[in-house]
Design a protein around this nucleic acid. Structure first.
Length: 197
DNA sequence: ACAGCGATTGACT
DNA sequence: GTCAATCGCTGTA
């Protein structure tokens, strides 16, 4: 079966729209040990000067510059001195925007993913932004990677279109701009972090 | 220059 | 429930 990445036009749209459309799609990670396929079940949208919670709120810096660049690029940042978080850039060139991937459900290559983490619990393997990057072995090295190319990391459309309901909520862990309802997740999915419903 | 803190997690009480 | 780990950006000097 051939999995093909979404084209740049998919990512080069309004950040909120892209965030919702990413739910249920497949994040594909090719490693030397094999392929890991993970369904995206939880995301958050981050924008620019209108979003105080965003890294791109103030100005362009060496860290956030990718958010200002072209869409469909992996923006990986290091947080709290310990963890990596994976984002996909959105909007057009010069317009900041990114979607944080907060949780995934591994559908293929579970054993490979487990070798990247110490936990033996499947549910704790990928139910958080820092956890899924560790499980998929995503680090700084992937910062700036083009996710529209069929390389070691890309996003492709799911073959099966199972029905799900999208829940909209406030973003997790932010202090400024927390009133913006820009967190989206699949209702009832066990891998969603910190469910309040 | 430097102190403070963040889009988090896991270990320990 | 509490807290350490520990990098890069921001505000203040």
């Amino acid at each position: 079966m051939s999995r093909n990445p979404f084209p740049r036009t998919f990512f080069g749209r309004d950040t909120i729209t892209v965030a919702c459309d990413l739910l249920g799609q497949n994040l594909v990670r090719s490693t030397a040990a094999g392929e890991i396929v993970a369904k995206i079940v939880e995301v958050e949208a981050y924008k620019g000067s209108d979003d105080p919670a965003s890294h791109a709120y103030r100005k362009k810096t060496p860290r956030n510059r990718l958010m200002f660049g072209k869409a469909g690029i992996a923006y990986v940042y290091f947080i709290y001195g310990n963890h990596y978080c994976l984002n996909v850039t959105t909007e057009g060139e010069g317009v900041p925007g990114a979607v944080l991937i907060r949780a995934v459900e591994v559908v293929e290559g579970l054993q490979i993913a487990q070798t990247h983490r110490t936990t033996h619990s499947v549910i704790n393997l990928t139910n958080g932004p820092g956890k899924l990057t560790q499980a998929l072995a995503i680090t700084n090295a992937h910062n700036g990677l083009d996710l529209t190319l069929k390389g070691e990391l890309f996003i492709s459309q799911t073959e099966t279109s199972d029905d799900f309901e999208i829940v909209t909520d406030q973003r997790v862990g932010v202090t400024a701009g927390k009133e913006k309802p820009w967190r989206f997740y699949i209702r009832g999915n066990k891998f969603v972090s910190q469910q309040f419903v």
